[in-house]
Design a protein around this nucleic acid. Structure first.
Length: 84
DNA sequence: TAGTTGACCGGAA
DNA sequence: ATTCCGGCCAACT
């Protein structure tokens, strides 16, 4: 299992209405501290089966999104109730 | 193979 | 609270 595949799997395992920071995903993927790598992977290898919109920064800010920008991402999170 | 990049994070100013 | 700098990791050229 490659790191990126593991990352995708972890992101896929994120329950609806819940968000995870890149750092957390990286840790669950087996490489704690590889937050940058996680973001890099998703950017180049964004998958439809992976709700990458549930992955945000540790600060709680969305950042980029390949499907309409950070705004869209925030919208989706709001729609799922991940935003208080 | 080596160098550069990035949807990051944490600490310091 | 906001902005700047350095460090870590994997992928891309």
């Amino acid at each position: 299992m490659d790191f990126k595949s593991k990352v995708l799997d972890v992101v896929r395992s994120i329950p609806k209405g819940q968000t995870m920071s890149y750092s957390e995903v990286a840790a669950l993927a087996g490489s704690p501290g590889a937050a940058r790598a996680v973001g890099n992977i998703m950017k180049q290898n964004y998958d439809n089966t992976v709700p990458c919109h549930r992955v945000i920064r540790a600060d709680g800010k969305p950042c980029g999104y390949n499907r309409g920008g950070p705004e869209k991402k925030l919208q989706i999170l709001q729609s799922e109730g991940a935003i208080k």
